[in-house]
Each structure stands twice: as C-alpha cells, then as structure tokens.
Amino acid sequence: MRRNGPTTRPGRPGSGGSSGCGRSRRFDVLVAGAGPAGCAAALPLVRAGASVVLVSPRTSPDWRVGESLAPTARPLLERLGALDGLADDGHAPCYGNQAAWGQDALTAVDHGLGPYGEGWHLDRTRFDAALLEATRAGGALWHAGHVRDARRHRSRWQITTGEGDVLEASHLVDATGRAARLARRVGAGRTRSDRLIAVAALLGPPKQAARPDRTSLVQATRWGWWYTAPLPGGERVLMAMTDADLLPGVRLLDPDVWWAQAQCAGHIRERIAGREQPPRRLRVFAAGSACATPAAGPGWVAVGDAATATDPLAARGIVTALATGLVGARAILAAEGGDTDAMAAYARRMTAVHAEYLEARAAQYRREQRWDTPFWDRRH
C-alpha cells in the first residue's frame, strides 16, 4: 500500500470546509461511514501506510443513541491512541448498570469491580467528532457525501457518491451502520432476527438541581422494556423498546402515552422525576439484531453494525464497532500481504461472533418470565 500523497486537507463535517479529496481520486481504501467503526478501521490502515478516504455526510444528527460506553472499550481506545483524549473531553463517568429484570427489585453491576474500571456516559456527538479528528490527524482524508454505487473493475472499485463524484479504491469498508448499504450493494445479504424498535427522547435537566446518578437503568414491562441513562450536562436519554408491529397497540408514538407509560414504570419514574413533561418530540430507531451474510468478500469488509447489529440490551454497540473496525483493518492488511483467505476468515469470524451474541441474548430474555405477552413469547 502506498503512503498518502499531497491532497487538500479535509474539513470537519458541518464546518463548511473542503471535502478533502483535492486532486486525488485514487485510494488504497475507501471507508463508507465515519463513526466509531469506520474510524477504528481507518486509523490502523493509515498507520500501516495506506491511503484512506472516509466518505460521510457533512452534517450529523444533533444526538445519537448509544450514550453509555462500557469499560471494555478502554483497551480498544488505547490501541487507537484515543483513550487519553476521552478523559479530557467532557464525558461523565458511568459506575455501572442497574436492572429490574425478572423481578421488581433492582440488581446492579458495579464497573468498579471489573478489570477495566468505570465506563462513560458519552456526549456521543463529541465522541464521534473526536474520533474522526484523530483519524484525520493520523493521515486519513474525509470526503463529504455518501456512497451511491460501487462497481468492481478488475482489481479496483469504482465508487460513485450521491454528489456525482467518482472515487477509486482497492478495498472497501462498509461502516454505514444497520443499513449496511455498501455490503448489500456489492451482493451481501442481511439476516434479521427480530424487529425491535426504540422510541426515544432527550429529557432536559431537572428543574431543581439534584445529585446526579452515574448508572444506566433497564426496566422490563409487559410490552418490552425501558432504558435510561444520564448524559453530560444534566440531560437524560429515555427509550422505550418494543417490536415494530406492537407499536400501534401500545401507542408509544404518542408522546403523552409514551410519557404516561414511563410514569407506570416505578424505577424509571424515579429517575426522570422533576423533568419537563412530556417531551415534544420522539425519535424512532431500528434496534433489532441482524448480521451481514457474508460480512466480507473479495476487496471489501463490513464493520460495526453493518457486520453485526445487536440489541441495545447487550450494551455492546460501540465496543463492537471499535473491535470489528480493528479486526477488519487487519484483514485488509493481511489480504494486501498475500493472505488469500483473509476476507473469508473475517467473514467466518463475524458469523461466529454474531451466533455467540444471539445465544447470550436468548439467555438474557429467558430470565424475564413474568409476562405471557407477544413481545416476551417471541423471545422465550
């Protein structure tokens, strides 16, 4: 792989700067998506001497689901050289998780008892921006846009963006999230295990100052379950989780009903006490389990949710994004070094990882046996 040549310096997404590709249109690796998975793949590649471009939209959502980061992310962030900056970037500590699951009383997992110490409650937009900035500082370029088409021409890919630009690369990395747009474009399938949906809102700070809690909370209900976690600055994320076809019956898309249901969940009600009610806007996200089949092929790999998307109950989304990004980059380097089985081995590994996750998810849902309702019957 060749070293990055002189190009125009990319601008930060949303900053109005240059798209970053300059005169160069040929790269060793094109990464579609610039979240944690895409950055985790790009950083090892540029450090190995590859020319890498990340393609992602100029603007990003004002907030993202996935605000709690498990302590197991520490060694991954350290490998990426991003651990020290995380501590100084305004994120709040997460001391553990609590759950009313299988019983009314809360059980707790204390991160302080684990090998890696505390986790984090993230300002997710700031976290993603810092990872992208570290990736750009390492030598990767950023191109504003999205991948519309990718076609194989001999040993290289020709990629067309939605803005009409044409880029070339020897290898592709799909980091487009649950949509897996690039993997599906080059022929991969998408196997879904359920239709879990998150109906979420950001709650503002409480009207009266209170001692902040530093744990996330899950509480099971007849129709699914609730999740809440504090955010830096006093805000809180609150999400109701159920299946897509059950939404009309529970009426969770109505903010008043959504808020009333939250008040019926005692532990949740305690966490959201004193906040403005109800929220004016709810957001709906796909949260089901799915995997790419396969997760890699000649000249391409899928990483993060594009490879293996997991139930938020597993609390492993960002950790999996970082880990698969690093492993995907290693597979590309191995293939470039002559290992003809590297991509197939990566695909087999992702299949095994997802199968292990599905077994763990099934065991966790079996622990909740209080209700004989469609949501739980499907998981038993």
Rank of each mutant, 00 (worst) to 15 (best):
A180T: 01
R181D: 07
A183Y: 08
A183L: 12
A183Q: 09
R184A: 01
R184M: 02
R185I: 05
R185K: 07
G187K: 01
G187M: 01
G187V: 03
R192T: 11
R192F: 03
S193I: 06
S193Y: 09
D194A: 04
L196I: 00
L196C: 00
I197G: 08
I197W: 11
A198N: 00
L203M: 02
G204R: 04
G204V: 00
G204T: 03
P206D: 00
K207W: 14
K207A: 10
K207E: 15
A209H: 07
A209N: 05
A210R: 13
R211W: 08
R211K: 10
D213N: 10
D213E: 12
S216P: 13
L217D: 09
L217V: 05
L217G: 05
L217Q: 04
V218M: 08
Q219E: 13
Q219P: 06
A220Q: 07
A220H: 07
A220F: 06
R222D: 12
R222V: 13
W223C: 11
W225T: 03
W225L: 05
W225E: 01
W225I: 03
Y227F: 15
Y227N: 06
T228W: 13
A229P: 06
A229Q: 05
P230I: 08
L231V: 11
G233F: 08
G234Q: 13
G234L: 13
E235S: 14
R236P: 05
R236N: 04
R236E: 12
V237I: 14
M241L: 09
T242A: 10
A244W: 11
A244F: 10
A244S: 14
A244D: 15
D245W: 15
D245V: 15
P248E: 10
G249N: 15
R251N: 13
L252D: 03
L253D: 15
P255C: 08
V257F: 08
V257K: 10
V257Y: 08
W258F: 09
W259Q: 01
Q261M: 04
C264Q: 12
A265L: 06
G266N: 14
G266F: 12
G266Y: 10
H267K: 14
I268G: 00
E270V: 15
E270A: 14
R271G: 11
I272K: 02
I272N: 04
I272W: 02
A273C: 07
E276M: 14
E276A: 15
E276Q: 15
Q277V: 08
Q277A: 15
P278H: 00
P278S: 00
R281A: 11
R281S: 08
F285S: 08
A286M: 06
A287V: 02
S289F: 12
C291L: 12
C291R: 15
C291H: 15
A296W: 09
G297R: 10
P298I: 09
P298S: 13
W300I: 02
W300Q: 02
W300H: 02
V301W: 05
V303F: 05
V303C: 05
V303R: 04
G304I: 02
G304L: 03
D305H: 08
D305C: 12
A307H: 05
D311C: 04
D311Y: 07
